[in-house]
């Protein structure tokens, strides 16, 4: 892919904006359409674009498969630990109202709810993004590097 200079430049321009859009989707999910599931997928799309243009090995240098596997567990643990944190702070499992101390009863504490939703969505985003990236690594890494060079790039323009 080294001779496709247009693709390389366009990809370099697109990848940061895709990542930025993913972060916007992640943290603006409370106010507009979006949330952890979508953000995770879009975040992964940036890395997949990088793989298609610069090759699998270069992407693995940026974010290693081991790190991806650890992150996919971190997301689930973050989600569950929000649940346990609210138990330790005196609420029920996943009762976010307990996360921020206030005089109000747990069910009527919007601040805590908001924090809880944000953390939980972050957990969802981390898990979804890293699981899909790890799945993609496994699918792409099988073998046939020569076929990959002219097979996958064909469909790249249509999706990103």
């Amino acid at each position: 892919m080294n001779h496709h200079i247009v693709l390389r430049v366009v990809a370099k321009l697109l990848i940061p904006s895709i990542l930025l859009f993913a972060l916007y989707t992640q943290f603006h999910g409370d106010y507009g359409p979006g949330g952890g599931f979508q953000a995770g997928v879009i975040y992964t799309a940036a890395f997949i674009l990088h793989t298609l243009v610069f090759g699998l090995e270069n992407t693995k240098k940026i974010i290693s498969p081991t790190l991806v596997q650890v992150l996919s567990a971190v997301g689930v643990i973050l989600y569950a630990s929000v649940g346990f944190a609210s138990i330790f702070l005196g609420g029920n499992f996943l009762e976010y109202g307990a996360l921020i101390p206030s005089a109000l009863p747990h069910a009527a504490n919007p601040g805590g709810q908001h924090l809880g939703i944000l953390l939980v969505e972050l957990g969802v985003g981390i898990t979804v993004s890293s699981v899909i990236l790890s799945i993609f690594y496994n699918f792409a890494a099988e073998d046939d590097s020569d076929i990959e060079a002219d097979g996958i790039p064909n469909e790249k323009g249509k999706h990103e």
């Binding site: 409370d30 106010y31 359409p33 949330g35 069910a107 919007p110 601040g111 709810q113 939703i117 969505e121």
Partner: peptide, 10 residues
Amino acid sequence: DTKSPNMVTA
């Protein structure tokens, strides 16, 4: 309840 205008997220 949640201060989140997007009901789907809430």
